[in-house]
Simulated assay, not measured.
Amino acid sequence: MGFLHNVREVVSACVKPKEKRVPKKTVNVRVKMDCEGCVRKVKHAVEDLKGVESFDVNQKMQRVTVTGYVDSEEVLKAVRGTGKNADNWPFVPYNLVAFPYVKGAYDIKAPSGFVRNTPDAAGDPKSPEMKLMRLFDDENPDACSIM
């Protein structure tokens, strides 16, 4: 009986699909919240999600931060279920972007100190502005030695 029981466990373990576990991560969502009632609705929606370890609802920045074993689409779906407009957090701190005021990066609706994360914000290395910036750069071996 013991041998048959072990064989059955091995076969059932091979046949069953393994449960996919979402890795631990932090999900940031932008949500339009006007009052404390909106904040309360979003808090209740987020705290009921499976796998949430901690969350922060910031009304001033219009941002919800969820940390845990959650999927970003599940968080978006839960927040949208409250009737609020929600999308993934599209902003990064402006000091992490080389050209924060390039077309498409600067957003007037962004919170203070944040700009949109766009690929154009890196700057074109062949542009005249970038060539002038590299002219007197310390890492440029052909830089002017007088400086």
Rank of each mutant, 00 (worst) to 15 (best):
K84T: 05
Y94E: 03
Y106W: 15
N95L: 09
N85E: 02
K84N: 06
D71L: 06
F91R: 02
Q62N: 15
P119L: 13
T65C: 11
E74C: 10
Y101M: 14
G68S: 02
V92S: 08
A110G: 12
V102F: 08
K60R: 15
R116I: 01
Y94Q: 12
F99Q: 01
K109N: 01
G113S: 11
A121G: 04
V92E: 01
Y94F: 15
E74L: 15
L96K: 08
F99N: 03
P100V: 05
A105G: 02
V92K: 10
V92P: 01
I108H: 14
F91S: 01
T82C: 08
V92Q: 04
Y94L: 11
F114V: 02
K60I: 09
Y106V: 06
A78M: 03
E73S: 14
K109V: 00
P100F: 14
Q62V: 05
G81S: 09
I108G: 10
F99H: 10
K77D: 08
V70T: 10
V92L: 06
R116L: 08
V70S: 11
V70P: 03
V79G: 04
T65E: 01
N95E: 07
K109F: 00
G81R: 07
R63G: 04
Y101T: 11
T67N: 10
Y101D: 09
A98L: 10
D120A: 13
F114M: 03
D71I: 02
D107H: 13
M61S: 13
G83K: 08
R63S: 03
A122V: 05
A78T: 01
T82M: 05
V115E: 02
V115C: 10
D107E: 07
N117A: 07
D87V: 06
L96A: 05
E74D: 14
G113W: 08
P119W: 14
R116D: 00
F99S: 03
A105L: 05
E74K: 11
V66R: 07
A86N: 01
V102M: 02
N85G: 05
G83C: 05
Y94V: 01
A122Q: 10
T82L: 09
D120E: 05
Y101F: 15
T67Q: 11
G104K: 14
N88Q: 04
K84G: 03
Y94C: 08
L76A: 03
